[in-house]
Amino acid sequence: MLSRIAESLFWIGRYVERADDTARIVDAQVQRILEDPWLDEAEACGSLMAVMGTPTDRVAGPLNRRVLLDTLAYDPVAPSSIAGSLAAARENARRAREVVSSEMWEVLNTTYYAIPTRVRAASAHRFAGWVRERAAVVTGIADSTMSRDAGYQFLVLGRSLERADMTARLLATTVLEAGPTWQTILHSCGAYEAFLRTYRGGRSGGRSDTQAAEFLLLDRLFPRSVVNALATAERCLEDLDPDAGRVGYADDARRTLAWTRGQLEFRSPAELLEDLPVEMERVQQAVSRVSDAVSRRYFPMGAGVEWVPEAM
């Protein structure tokens, strides 16, 4: 497979997942702002933008939910916004048209051109719900129309890395003074019913919060948990390069993923939750290192062309 095609598929997976998860995070925080009249709106918006890695020093005027939505949802060019991510996913699909199915191209293209209408006509909550639905359609079409070859592995690899990063960011928002509750977090991840079935309804009070954190961090079966996303990314890398050798991992990406997952799985939940923001920052840094390692190995930049004069 050409490296440019592999890179486009990798980033389609990342950008679609980024749009989906950003919609979930923003929707949860905006609902929190609307429901709590005693919440400091500027502080809540500023804290979330900080968690999402968006600088607030360039924002003119006071921070409020309109600024939050304009920055993280509606900005058409920022790659960290919902609209910008969907635009970038569509552009990468255009570059890989020879391997992307017609159905997948159509849904990405239609979604891209429908964004302005949705922004004008829908509330923030409805817009976030529409984005989640479109991301689910893209994922479903990819799973049902793509052969399980290297291209599919790159797509799922990008999706899994982005999911681990964004779930870590979502978990980090729970410690903010103006952050969403654990019940809101579970709902925003689509995890509430799965959590109730796993813990038989859970318990009230702090123990329930601990169980919710454990579920989104460590559950091996729920697809949006951090551990599950890291394990899925590991399997993709293993399928792309099954010969790991007899001693350790020669691949920096697999080594980083295995170490990060081990740091989560082989420590007590109480220890992880004691300093959750630091742990989630480590997960985000690990995902960044893995992405860089994948790019170095599979998406090398072409060397510059030098013209050599012909010998006389």
Score class of each variant (00 low, 15 high):
L155M: 06
V156H: 01
L157W: 02
L161V: 04
R163I: 05
T167S: 07
A168N: 08
R169S: 09
R169G: 08
L170E: 00
L170V: 03
L170Y: 07
L171R: 02
T173Y: 00
E177V: 15
T181N: 07
T181Y: 08
W182H: 12
Q183D: 15
T184Y: 03
I185P: 01
L186S: 03
H187L: 15
C189A: 15
G190K: 03
Y192E: 09
L196D: 11
L196E: 12
L196H: 12
T198L: 12
Y199Q: 11
R200E: 14
R200M: 13
G201S: 10
G202F: 06
G205P: 09
G205W: 10
G206C: 10
S208V: 09
S208I: 09
S208F: 09
A212K: 07
E214N: 13
F215V: 05
L216R: 00
L217C: 02
L217R: 00
F222L: 02
P223E: 06
P223H: 06
P223T: 05
L230V: 07
L230I: 11
L230G: 02
A231M: 04
A231I: 02
A231W: 01
T232E: 14
T232H: 08
T232N: 10
E234I: 08
C236T: 05
C236L: 06
L237K: 01
D239Q: 13
P242G: 10
P242S: 11
